[in-house]
Simulated assay, not measured.
Amino acid sequence: MNTASINEDGASGTASGSGAEPRWLTDREQRVWRSYVHATMLLEDHLDRQLQRDAGMPHIYYGLLVQLSQAPRRRMRMTELAKGAKITRSRLSHAVARLEKNGWVRREDCPSDKRGQNAYLTDEGFEVLRRSAPGHVEAVRQAMFDRLTPEQVDQLGSIMRVVADALEPSDPNADLPWLR
């Protein structure tokens, strides 16, 4: 469903969970929310199709390769990689298995903790990333930045920082995907 929630009158909002009346979204907020959800779904689909076509991988795999390319010695603990991608360890394990099958990533035992594993970006994986980056950045630029004024880019950046800062987990015991 592309709405925060629906009451019996068809109005949208988010239930507070406290038993109090939910603070339903105004018509204006609902329009913005639906535009945001629609645009993010279309953007993710656009980037996924471009990467599948040009590099033979979904957008999530590209993001994993980027994280590894930016890590020291192109290695990361699997739990940190899952945290960075905001996915479950199970989903990461499946993704890394596919990347390993392509020869782009390799798993290694963690030298400091025998229970843990690192993911390592191979030279072949780095080369795939290097070749696919220009097409990906062009897809991002064409889909988003070429359509916005410089002021809108700054506004979007400010808005996304506010949202991200508010949602960044502060409770280490929270039910977070990368801990599952």
Rank of each mutant, 00 (worst) to 15 (best):
W33C: 07
V96N: 02
R141Q: 12
R115C: 06
E108C: 09
D45F: 13
R141C: 08
V153G: 09
L42F: 13
V105G: 03
Q52S: 10
D27S: 13
S93Y: 13
Q155N: 14
D54R: 10
I87H: 02
I87G: 03
Q67D: 11
T79W: 06
A71L: 07
C110F: 12
F145E: 09
C110V: 03
Q70C: 09
W33M: 11
F145P: 02
Q152V: 05
D54V: 05
L121P: 01
N118P: 00
L25C: 04
V162I: 15
S12P: 00
S5W: 02
L81S: 07
Q67G: 07
G19W: 09
H46W: 13
A55N: 02
R115E: 10
Y61I: 07
Q30I: 03
W178N: 09
T149I: 04
I60D: 06
R74T: 05
V96L: 14
R161P: 04
V105Q: 03
N2W: 15
V128L: 07
D27W: 13
M144Y: 05
I6W: 08
D9G: 12
H94D: 15
M76K: 05
G10I: 01
D48Y: 05
L176C: 08
R161H: 13
S69N: 11
Y36W: 13
F145A: 06
A71T: 04
A11H: 08
V162L: 13
P58N: 10
H94I: 14
E80T: 09
F145L: 06
L99H: 01
W33T: 02
E8I: 08
K101W: 12
L156H: 08
T79F: 03
P72F: 11
K114P: 14
L129C: 09
E44F: 11
H38I: 00
R147M: 11
L156Y: 08
D27K: 11
P169F: 09
T122I: 01
E138Y: 10
S16E: 09
E108N: 13
R107M: 06
G157H: 08
Q52D: 14
A143K: 02
P150A: 11
Y62F: 15
P169L: 05
M41R: 11
H38R: 15
P177Q: 04
V140Y: 01
G56D: 02
P169E: 10
G10N: 06
S170T: 14
A71R: 03
C110D: 15
G125K: 00
M57F: 12
A164I: 12
P177F: 11
R115F: 12
R131Y: 00
P111K: 07
Q50D: 11
H94K: 12
A55L: 02
G84Y: 03
T88N: 05
D27I: 10
D123V: 00
V153Q: 06
T122K: 00
A164N: 15
L121V: 01
Q152Y: 04
R131A: 09
G56S: 07
V37C: 03
S170D: 13
L92P: 01
E168T: 15
G10M: 06
